[in-house]
């Protein structure tokens, strides 16, 4: 390779890694620098290929030099987001592994003959779908967050640390331990929520009373209305999705704050709205539940057992919804109390 070509290539390799606007300037400067360094090295004698090589080696690899010019390190996920990223990744993996395992276990219970097949599917799915999907999507989301917040996050941080307005009297109080949220609570809630979503999306047909005939499972009397299931499913997933958002907020804030109380209240009101939509449609529960019980000889029409079953069915379906609504309302009240306790102190 000719001397000049080697220099050209080196300068190009550095500048192509820099923003367009700086290339020309840095390029001119580098040519000047390399020539100066060569001049000093040969002291008026002829420049050999070897001299060029040594000068370039002294300057270091184009990648390193370009990095020094760029100054800031490029991150896919920077230090500000990293902890959150790992936390979310852990939760997502635990949830999905638990969900897949649950599906596997249900499959085996229902159909023990195919255990080996299910097991192979189960293991294979980890490598083909689950792990790449979970890690991929989580990483991609965070990489987006990093990309669009580039500089802003670290800017925020430096603003905090270099804040000139800072005064000891402005120090935030140490959070009351009573207000603190133990991270295991939201994590468990998220994992259970994901499990429920997996269950409702994949195996809802087993959500009911299992009828065995001749030692085999012959039928499931569904609790839910199978005819309207697709629309019910959307509402259920929305409902559970809202819970996941809420629990993620708890994880993020780590304690009850006014902001979190407001978000929680909003999410819970929406959730209650969803329940009302489900109920008012009157197609959430299986309308022929009692008929099917009779059909499969679980109870006989006209007997006391039938009446008891009917009362239980009506009461349970009614109170399930009432308890859900009460749970959502009580969570708002609980948050309200915790926030108020703090502001009194």
């Amino acid at each position: 390779m000719k001397k000049m070509e080697m220099i050209d290539r080196y300068v190009y390799a550095v500048t192509k890694r820099l923003p367009e606007t700086q290339r020309k300037d840095v390029s001119d400067e580098l040519y000047g620098l390399i020539e100066d360094m060569l001049d000093e090295r040969v002291q008026g004698k002829n420049i050999t290929d070897n001299d060029v090589e040594e000068v370039l080696l002294e300057l270091g690899s184009p990648r390193q030099l370009a990095q020094k010019y760029r100054g800031t390190k490029k991150y896919v996920i920077g230090p500000e987001l990293y902890d959150m990223y790992i936390l979310v990744l852990k939760i997502a993996l635990i949830s999905v592994v638990a969900g897949t395992t649950a599906v596997f276990v249900i499959q085996v219970i229902l159909n023990p003959m195919n255990t080996l097949d299910y097991f192979i599917d189960y293991i294979v799915s980890f490598f083909t779908a689950i792990i790449p999907n979970v890690i991929g999507w989580t990483t991609l989301s965070f990489a987006f967050a990093e990309y669009f917040s580039e500089g802003k996050l670290s800017g925020e941080l430096s603003k905090v640390t270099l804040d000139k307005e800072w005064h000891p009297s402005n120090l935030a109080p140490i959070p009351d331990p009573k207000r603190r949220i133990n991270p295991s609570e939201p994590i468990i809630a998220i994992v259970v929520s994901v499990l429920l979503i997996v269950f409702f999306a994949a195996s809802h047909e087993y959500f009911g009373i299992w009828i065995y005939q001749n030692g085999e499972m012959a039928h499931v009397i569904s609790f839910l209305n199978e005819n309207a299931y697709s629309s019910i499913l959307i509402l259920i997933i929305l409902f559970i999705g809202l819970i996941i958002v809420k629990e993620s907020l708890k994880l993020f804030y780590g304690r009850w704050t006014k902001a979190m109380l407001i978000y929680t209240a909003m999410l819970n009101v929406i959730s209650i709205g969803l329940i009302i939509v489900l109920v008012s449609g009157e197609n959430l529960w299986n309308p022929s539940f009692m008929n099917e019980l009779v059909q499969y000889n679980v109870v006989t029409r006209g007997t006391d057992a039938f009446r008891t079953a009917q009362i239980i069915w009506e009461q349970v379906t009614f109170w399930t919804l009432v308890i859900l609504v009460m749970g959502l309302v009580s969570e708002i009240i609980k948050g309200l109390i915790k926030v108020r306790k703090q502001s009194k102190n």
């Binding site: 840095v26 620098l33 360094m37 002294e58 300057l59 030099l65 020094k68 100054g71």
Partner: peptide, 12 residues
Amino acid sequence: VEPGTLYPLLRR
């Protein structure tokens, strides 16, 4: 000082 350090420093 290495030129490879000083040049980027001056620009910054």
